[in-house]
């Protein structure tokens, strides 16, 4: 059911944990659909994402998508981080089963939510960043 990459990221998730005094934290998803993802970012003065960690309550795909998303945004600029979409995550994982597409969407939203939190804390406006939908249980249509 899952690709080798998904299984690898599920079995050996990268960047699990918390960041103390993170620049931005975002939590998305809801317990109804069974997936909750929290993303921590450390962003330096040059707007580079220096560190990224996650915690996820969810299925194998949700864990793998979170893990992959942290890898994809680490070392990137904020704009590059925002450009990491659910498609990027899915492709990097060599695909997800159709019923699991919303997990990759959750990863995208988690990054956005963490950057949103960073922007709010620092009173800055980031171009192209919209207030994230924290509860994306209805978001599956977008992924399909």
């Amino acid at each position: 059911m899952y690709s080798k990459k998904v299984m690898d990221h599920f079995q050996h998730p990268r960047n699990v944990g918390e960041i103390d005094n993170a620049s931005g934290v975002g939590t998305v998803g809801n317990a109804k659909c069974g997936d909750i993802m929290r993303m921590y970012l450390n962003i330096d003065d040059h707007g580079i994402i220096r560190d990224c960690k996650f915690k996820t309550f969810g299925c194998g795909a949700a864990v793998a998508a979170s893990s992959m998303a942290t890898e994809l945004v680490k070392g990137k600029t904020i704009q590059e981080g925002l450009a990491v979409s659910n498609k990027t995550v899915m492709e990097a994982l060599d695909g997800l089963p159709p019923v699991k597409i919303h997990c990759s969407l959750l990863a995208e939203e988690a990054i956005h939510a963490a950057i949103w939190d960073y922007a709010k804390k620092h009173h800055i406006k980031i171009e192209g960043l919209q207030k994230p939908k924290l509860d994306i249980s209805e978001g599956t249509e977008k992924g399909k």
Binding site: Q11, C33, G58, C59, G60, S137
Partner: peptide, 29 residues
């Protein structure tokens, strides 16, 4: 802890079980 994650990890230990989590039912509920 989410059920499907638990199942996959048990599977890796050679233990086969099942869960009522949405992820194992193919729906969101």
């Amino acid at each position: 802890v989410e059920g499907e994650s638990l199942l996959i990890m048990l599977n890796m230990e050679g233990i086969y079980a099942s869960s009522g989590s949405a992820c194992t039912s193919g729906s969101l509920d």
